[in-house]
Design a protein around this nucleic acid. Structure first.
Length: 343
DNA sequence: CATCAGGGCCCTG
DNA sequence: CAGGGCCCTGAT
């Protein structure tokens, strides 16, 4: 990694964001179940990440035109408390950023990190639930989040399909080193994603050289779909959930498991699980029914259970239990879980 | 050493 | 709607 050219981001400006209260900075900005990639870094109270964000926000349903997007370095600092939340964001860039750009950026960050989410009803509804109640108290103010664009998140989804964590990490890193940009800011060096158009001139064979296998075809096709404006993240945000589902499924290489995750993480639907993949099925069976993971509850029964018990908050409820488990794993050894994670 | 299934998905029949 | 093939890796 030492022999990579590095773009130093010299311009710096500060944003302040006041999230809704209560707010849990660490549990929102760091998700221990996400596989580690070198485009972000977390330590308690601080989170660094790169971001590629257009110079002006595309008009709704339209497409981004004009100057190429800025590559940013972001440093989020927790400068508030659970009940009086505040986040200071240091925005590092190559060029100076104008006020309109910063306003749009701030709005996008609030969206991605769910910083205006009102958790009151969810908290009240489940605070006395024997299983969920204590976890809601422990992680009071935790939000769902995704830190990537739709395109970037789709790439991550494809890297996850059908392989071990180690392989996902190495494939992602290989892609960064070939097509991404290494950014230097605040004494950190982190990779920024390439843009879909950057892969237009790359052949499938070259991509396969990075040992990403059949995923090369998926990435090529999907990048083209973004370049040709067949997919527009901002237009999809305005669609109904059913339309979104249909649109995402039409992407080559994106199936039911990926769509379920995209609807939840990127499009913020908390009310529905559509699909539970086999490895999640095993973990849910143990977590909710203390069942031997090798003999899991059927997908249908689990879906029915979540629907009955958590109603329109089912995905959020599962998220709280899921994250609690992964935070626990940071501090203690959980043998049955280790067996299910393919490192 | 060989064989095989897997944190899916596509395509075929 | 069931089942084979796909890149690779790690388990057996």
């Amino acid at each position: 990694m030492t022999d990579h050219n590095c773009e130093r981001l010299t311009s710096k400006i500060i944003l302040e964001i006041i999230p809704t209260s209560p707010f849990n900075f660490d549990a929102t900005f760091h998700k221990p179940d996400h596989y580690p990639t070198q485009d972000n870094f977390w330590e308690p109270g601080v989170k660094w990440q790169t971001m590629v964000w257009p110079n002006f926000v595309p008009p709704s349903g339209g497409t981004s035109r004009g100057k190429p997007p800025e590559k940013l370095g972001l440093k989020f600092i927790n400068t508030g408390s659970t009940d009086k939340p505040k986040i200071t964001v240091k925005v590092y860039s190559f060029l100076k950023l104008d006020q309109e750009y910063l306003n749009n950026l701030k709005e996008e960050l609030i969206y991605r990190y769910s910083l205006s989410l009102d958790l009151t009803e969810f908290d009240q509804k489940f605070r006395d639930d024997p299983q969920l109640g204590p976890i809601i108290k422990r992680w009071k103010g935790m939000r769902p989040m995704h830190y990537s664009s739709l395109y970037e998140h789709i790439i991550i989804m494809i890297m996850l399909q059908n392989c071990t964590v180690r392989r996902s990490v190495s494939m992602q890193q290989a892609l960064f080193e070939h097509y991404g940009t290494l950014l230097s800011f605040d004494n950190k060096k982190l990779w920024a994603f390439w843009e879909p158009a950057d892969l237009e001139i790359i052949t499938e064979e070259e991509l396969r050289g990075l040992k990403i296998g059949y995923r090369a075809k998926f990435i090529k096709r999907i990048s083209s779909q973004f370049v040709n404006h067949e997919v527009n993240e901002f237009a999809i945000r305005k669609m109904s959930q059913e339309e979104q589902k249909e649109k995402l499924l039409s992407l080559y290489g994106i199936g039911p498991a990926s769509v379920n995750d995209l609807l939840w993480e990127v499009f913020k639907h908390y009310d529905k699980l559509v699909k539970i993949s086999p490895w999640q099925q095993k973990i849910y069976s143990k977590l909710f029914f203390d069942r031997d993971p090798e003999n899991p509850i059927s997908e249908d029964k689990l879906l029915h259970f979540f629907e009955e018990k958590y109603g329109r908050y089912q995905m959020l409820a599962v998220h709280y239990l899921w994250e609690d488990l992964w935070w626990k794993r940071q501090n203690e050894h959980i043998p049955w879980l280790e067996k299910l994670i393919r490192l």
